[in-house]
């Protein structure tokens, strides 16, 4: 019988693909933000806020951050799968990482839309 655990590796291709798609999103956003920062001569509070003021920039930033959080989940899960042998401990660590990342997602949206 195949031994399948809740914390086992039954999620191959989909996450492999997601890791790459989210990586490309973050790469593109990195180029965008570097270009925008280089195009801004002096960065003070007004120009810094102005950078994230347009709706398209809020959405681009949110897309990048959500990609980051999903990417971080896949990466952290892989690390735990490699080093944490005890299933219960691994499950607890997964829960902590998922909870943190969902909280970061809400926090990010709140930061962006308070501008």
């Amino acid at each position: 019988m195949v031994n399948r655990a809740v914390t086992g590796a039954h999620y191959g291709l989909r996450d492999w693909l997601a890791q790459r798609v989210t990586a490309v999103v973050m790469l593109l956003y990195t180029l965008l933000i570097v270009w925008l920062l280089l195009a801004t001569p002096t960065i003070d509070h007004d120009t810094w806020r102005g950078l994230f003021a347009p709706l398209w920039m809020k959405l681009a930033t949110l897309l990048c951050l959500l990609s980051l959080y999903f990417h971080a989940w896949v990466g952290m899960r892989n690390i735990f799968m490699d080093y944490i042998k005890h299933g219960g401990v691994r499950l607890a660590l997964y829960a902590v990482v998922i909870a943190a990342l969902i909280a970061y997602a809400g926090w990010s949206a709140q930061i962006l839309w308070s501008i």
């Binding site: 509070h45 810094w48 806020r49 994230f52 970061y104 926090w107 990010s108 930061i111 308070s114 501008i115």
Partner: peptide, 8 residues
């Protein structure tokens, strides 16, 4: 995130 929020 905290630094980013603070800066904005």
């Amino acid at each position: 995130l905290a630094w980013w929020q603070c800066s904005l």
